[in-house]
Every structure is written in structure tokens, then in C-alpha cells.
Computed example of a mutant assay.
Amino acid sequence: MIDIETHSEQDTIALGAALGRVLSDGDVLALQGDLGAGKTHFVQGIAKGMGIDEPVVSPTFTILNYYEHAVPLQHFDFYRLEDEYELDDLGFDDYLTRGVTVIEWSEKFPERLPEDAARVFIEKKGLTERIFHFEFNGARWAAAEKEVESYVVSH
């Protein structure tokens, strides 16, 4: 596990951008954190790092925001989902094989996450201070892990 502290929304976005630069087709990130932990800011950074210019907003009410790009970004929010069958209605499993998939409130349906999904736990430490706990699973995450570690060194 790698732990990284951020001290502002800008830091959180910058951390996401560093990670977004090395994500590739089929990557799944499972985010966990309380309301206001910075999950959406982190995803805004990921989109920026991937080269997506359009505004990234929380999909709390839409469940999924899809951002078309060379490698698309699929931003899910499980917060309002009650039953697992709702994922089936969305065709959730079909999204996991292509693009970059980022899931807020992923802990609601942990059994639906791919085994090799990266897990990111965001802990609020103050008004804008956060600790990101990264857990990378498998060889596919070597570049992401290296990028996150180098982010620590440069900040």
C-alpha cells in the first residue's frame, strides 16, 4: 500500500492527473471515502491526465458519466444504488473491459469489482487535507504504482 497526503483540492486534482497519464484500456479504480472526501476532484484530475478537456462532474444522480476520448473514461457512482441488479440494468460488466473505469462508493458492491481493480481509500484529515491509500493489485499496475511513488518524491 502507498499513502499520499494532499493539502488542497489542487493537490488532489494534481495527484489524479499524475495517475491519469499512465492509465490504460481496461483499468478499473475503486474509490472509497466519506462524503466530501474528494473523490470527484480526484476523478477530475484523472480525466485531465488522460487528456479529457470537458468538465467532470459527480455522477451521483446519473450513476454514470461517460467521457469519450481515445481511451474513454467511465465514471460511476454507486451511492444511490440499492440493489445489485441495478448494475446489470446499466450493463456495468460490459464497461469493465474497455476504457478506464472509476467507481465512487465502490464498497457498496465489492463482489462486482474485478479482482485486479486498484483500490483507493481517501481519508479526510482536515478541511482540505486528505490521505490517499493506494492498493494496486497485479502486474498491470506497475506503471501506475511507479507514477504514484514518483508523485510523492516530487511533492
Rank of each mutant, 00 (worst) to 15 (best):
V152Q: 13
D93K: 14
L87A: 08
Q10A: 15
F136T: 07
V100I: 14
D89M: 06
R140C: 03
H155P: 00
E149P: 02
K124F: 02
Q32I: 10
M50R: 05
E84R: 10
G138M: 08
A142W: 11
G91T: 00
F92A: 04
D3M: 02
K146E: 12
Y67F: 15
W105H: 14
I63C: 02
D88A: 00
E135H: 02
E149R: 13
E68N: 02
L81I: 14
K146R: 14
P114S: 09
L73V: 03
L31K: 01
L127M: 13
E149C: 05
V148Y: 05
G33P: 05
E111F: 03
Y67A: 08
N137G: 01
L31P: 00
E84C: 04
H41M: 10
G36W: 05
H155C: 04
V153G: 00
K39R: 05
E145M: 10
L113V: 13
E104C: 08
H133A: 12
T101Q: 09
E129D: 09
F92Y: 11
E147P: 00
E9Q: 11
E104G: 09
G26S: 06
V43H: 06
L87T: 10
W141S: 02
R112F: 10
R119G: 07
G33M: 07
L23P: 02
F78N: 03
D11E: 10
E104Y: 01
K125F: 13
F134I: 12
G20E: 09
H133M: 12
R80G: 00
E149L: 11
N65F: 02
A17N: 10
G49K: 03
F92H: 01
S8A: 07
I131T: 15
F132H: 13
Q44C: 10
L23M: 15
Y79G: 09
A37H: 00
I52S: 00
N137S: 14
R119T: 11
E82D: 15
R130Q: 13
Y79N: 02
R80T: 00
G16H: 04
E68T: 13
D34K: 07
L31M: 14
L87K: 06
H69N: 15
L113F: 10
T101C: 15
